[in-house]
Design a protein around this nucleic acid. Structure first.
Length: 403
RNA sequence: GUGGAUGUAGUUCAGCUGGUAGAGCACCUGUUUGUGGCACAGGUUGUCGCGGGUUCGAGCCCCGUCAUCCACCCCA
């Protein structure tokens, strides 16, 4: 027996129904905000992710499904969605359009990690990317939209936000931080020391309690933002307050992906174990340029479908569709044209095997049909069909043509 | 990559200090004639993850291996 690869899963019945429900709900709501579908390849040049997600990230550093294809290209399976969408945006020269453009996408992502609760090697994200809008109102709008999607799905969450600054305030802050960290580097853990060089910002959310104590007094970016970033962040908080959305400012909230700037946010759930982030995103005003496009501000997010599947409250299943069966083998041929015409509008299940009435009703009940329509011996002789509503229990015998 | 736990019927699990497997659910059949969900009765299903070893004998002990789960790490 061949099983799925480690960290990869088949989805059926209950699970696939949850999956589809989440995706369709997210699509429906994001369309209301003006998002349109974009489909991009799963396989991309490795360079795309090196340049966007960043060399210092774990994703690029050690988690990519990377290989050389038969044409000798260095390729990899996308570990996240934003890079591909931005690449597509630039490839199609949409960066030359003056208007804002909004895309939603969903699909599989691949990261070679050790699987655990809420962490698969092949997992699915639904995400949105909004291009060309620099206003903090767009940051707020996109956060509201995510909240709306979670509300619609009955998923509880906590919102965390942070500002990562911009090209004006981040570099001086970083210098400051490195100086501070270098002073205490002897006392910090191995990981922190490595990060001082590769990505000093990441030192801030080191989980080591010893390090955390030492990092208490590190300069906080949030206190060193430039005027514009500071006022944007204040504005974002005002907007959230006015909308009655509760949030927490988490100054250690650092996106692991290098391309984010300014607003960063994360939606977290306490009910799904250690992998608690159910959606994350933020602004990435420089990414289009990094990928050779014309400077275009952008905001986006991605949500983890598998994690949401643990939390979603599915609507009550209701009976639906028609079950067709007969009690005599000769009558089965008459079922097929009936099924065909009914299928123009409704879900129909046809049982090809002649069975006793009781067996048919049991089967109809089991698949959750609303109506059982059976042709028995009498009905077959008279050209009628016996129809029973499985909910109301009403039954009637009518001519086949009237069914 | 590191650590811990677990792998027994389709599924959830039980199986005491070693004597060649059980329960609930599911499934099938029936409870007489053409009426479902309930109840009752009966029935099917297992290379006990895989490979070695110890033993007269291993689901139970030992070694290895693979897989799953959880946590670290990182993130959706």
């Amino acid at each position: 027996m061949i099983n799925p690869l480690r960290g990869m899963k088949d989805l059926t019945f209950e699970d696939s129904a949850r999956f589809v429900y989440i995706i369709t709900t997210a699509i429906e709501i994001s369309k209301r905000y003006g998002y349109e579908y974009i489909e991009t390849p799963i396989l991309e040049e490795t360079a795309l992710f090196r340049r966007s997600v960043g060399e210092s990230s774990d994703i690029v550093g050690k988690e990519m499904y990377q290989f050389e294809d038969k044409g000798g290209n260095d390729v990899c399976m996308r570990p996240e969605g934003t890079a591909g969408v931005v690449r597509a945006f630039v490839s199609a020269k949409l960066d030359r359009q003056p208007s804002t453009q909004k895309f939603y996408y969903y699909g599989p992502m691949f990261r070679y990690e050790r699987p655990q609760k809420g962490r698969l090697r092949e997992f699915h994200q639904f995400g949105c990317e909004s291009f060309g809008e620099a206003s903090v109102y767009e940051d707020f709008t996109i956060i509201s939209m995510i909240a709306q999607i979670f509300d619609a799905l009955g998923i509880g969450y906590e919102l965390q936000i942070n500002s990562l600054g911009c090209e004006n305030c981040m570099p001086p802050y970083k210098e400051n931080l490195v100086a501070f960290l270098t002073d205490i580097k002897e006392a910090l853990c191995e990981d922190c020391n490595r990060r001082i060089v590769t990505n000093p910002i990441r030192v801030l959310d080191c989980k080591n309690t010893n390090c955390q104590a030492l990092l208490q007094d590190t300069p906080k970016l949030i206190e060193n933002l430039c005027t514009e970033c500071d006022s944007d962040f204040s504005k974002l908080k005002d907007l959230l307050n006015n909308a009655n959305m509760s949030y927490e400012v988490d100054t250690n909230l650092v996106r692991g992906l290098d391309y984010y700037n300014k607003a960063a946010f994360e939606f977290v759930s306490n009910d799904i174990g250690a992998q608690s982030a159910i959606a994350g995103g933020g602004r990435y005003d420089k990414l289009v340029e990094y990928l050779d496009g014309r400077a275009t501000p952008a905001v986006g997010f991605a949500m983890g479908v598998e994690r949401m599947m643990e939390l979603v409250q599915m609507p009550e299943p209701s009976r639906g569709g028609i079950y067709l069966g007969t009690m005599s083998p000769e009558a089965i041929d008459t079922l097929l044209p009936l099924a065909k015409s009914k299928r123009l509008r409704e879900q129909v299940t046809v049982e090809y095997q002649a069975k006793k009435l009781k067996a048919h009703l049991k089967a109809a009940d089991k698949i959750g049909a609303k109506v059982a329509a059976i042709i028995g011996e009498d009905e077959f002789a008279n050209g009628t069909i016996w129809v029973k509503d499985l909910e109301s229990k009403e039954e009637k015998t009518i001519p086949v043509e009237e069914f």
